[in-house]
Design a binder for these strands. Structure first.
Lengths: 238, 238
DNA sequence: AGTTTTCAGGTTATCAGACAATCATATGAA
DNA sequence: TTCATATGATTGTCTGATAACCTGAAAACT
């Protein structure tokens, strides 16, 4: 007996594929909020896989906030989809998407600089100096320098005292630097590194001086410079 | 034989709790990137639950991008953690977390206003006007007015032409408005609604005029006003 | 009649054990 | 040394069973 064509052929993780199938049905509106999914046993029979796999697929959808399960009742498509934010891997190399990402980063970094100047504590200054030191030591721009750069900005985000900035900026700038590293492995940082260090130092001093306006200006300058260095055309109104 | 105290007592979903425990260990640095987690059988014994539960917990962490599993080898803490961003439900009512969320929203909204002024198209203006109209019609501040308000800001995000702004601002302001609605069901909007309408109209006109500086200023005014209306103390440097 | 209690069936949650697929390493042959 | 093979460990999947829980209807009671 040959199963129907909708059955899952196995070249990859079964649960992920089944979850994707249901996610698509929800996205396309075939399954509307409030609708009940088939029982696990039914799915198990229909897809030709064990209930274990079905359960893992459902658990995945539940974690993503698309469905809700009630013991003894069933699984239901969630009403108001909790907005999860995800930086898709798809547009990683897309230059347009890259510009969009940078465009998003700029205001966050500037605001973070201002808040960091206001709210930072001694430990944050220590983190900033530590990252600065590492950037100056490692003349090699490619490897540790990039990581130290990332840590420097991460420290600024931490200094805001606002965990959302840590999360958002962490994800965004992490993704940006990753793309840079991947696309231009051999970027010539030798001449640039001095400029970046100067900008970072000014940024650090402005924060240490608890001067939000100066910190914001410094970060703005740094962002403009960064954009130019990677040949990005952006608008800066302030 | 009595099990150790670290065992999971069951009042809630087992997999979620175990996943949270490991997530915490990763966040706090007890488990560093590259570290290998115990085998499923070991965890099963240590936690006193079946391997099914352990597997679901691991699957959850994998979906969140915190760990990676390799068949025949084990589960490892991922190198670059959390490119996923989550707005936890935990701090929903926490006034401090609420301020943090608003603090994050401000620069995004201002930047979005500037970009919208530059990049908007005819359809976006139509969306703005439509939402504005709905807000003016429904004097009832509580119900549809809030939704129209959200749609207005959503339209601005869309007008940037940058999908990241749509995603990020959508998630953030959605969460903010949700909290407002939940906490102050009976907020007196009657006197306020006129002011909000005026601010929105100015915002719309600035965008329509393709004047980024004016749009940013209008949004800044709007944000300051919003913060005051919900009795939030924020810093505004620009 | 109207209300509460009890029961039966279905569904998800968890458990237990087994086998399959895959990988890392040790072992042995060339 | 270098390559092929065997072996053990670990995750992936399967199967069947039991527990916890919910819904709705029948039964018992007022």
């Amino acid at each position: 007996m040959i199963g129907p064509l909708t059955q899952i052929s196995r070249t990859e993780h079964l649960p992920a594929r089944i979850a994707a199938q249901f996610a698509q049905q929800i996205q396309e509106g075939d399954l509307k909020p409030g609708d009940r999914l088939p029982t696990e046993n039914e799915m198990s029979k229909n897809f030709g896989v064990s209930r274990t796999v079905i359960r893992e697929a459902i658990a995945q959808l539940r974690n993503e906030g698309m469905i809700e399960t009630r013991q003894g009742v069933g699984a239901f498509v969630i009403g108001r989809p909790t907005r999860h934010i995800r930086l898709d891997d798809r547009r990683k190399m897309d230059p347009h998407g890259f510009r969009d990402l940078f465009q998003l980063r700029v205001p966050l970094e500037i605001e973070a600089a201002g808040l960091a100047a206001t709210y930072h504590r001694a430990e944050h200054l220590r983190q900033l100096d530590e990252a600065l030191q590492r950037m100056k030591v490692t003349d090699d721009g490619a490897g540790d320098g990039i990581i130290a750069d990332l840590d420097f900005h991460r420290a600024i985000a931490a200094a805001t005292g606002n965990d959302y900035f840590v999360q958002f900026l962490g994800a965004v700038s992490d993704r940006i630097l990753q793309t840079i590293v991947e696309s231009r492995e051999r970027i010539r940082l030798d001449e640039i590194v001095a400029i970046v260090n100067r900008e970072h130092t000014e940024l650090r001093d402005a924060i240490a001086a608890r001067d939000p306006v100066r910190a914001r200006a410094a970060m703005r300058t740094h962002m403009v410079g960064s954009a130019e260095r990677i040949a990005l055309r952006l608008e800066f109104y302030l």
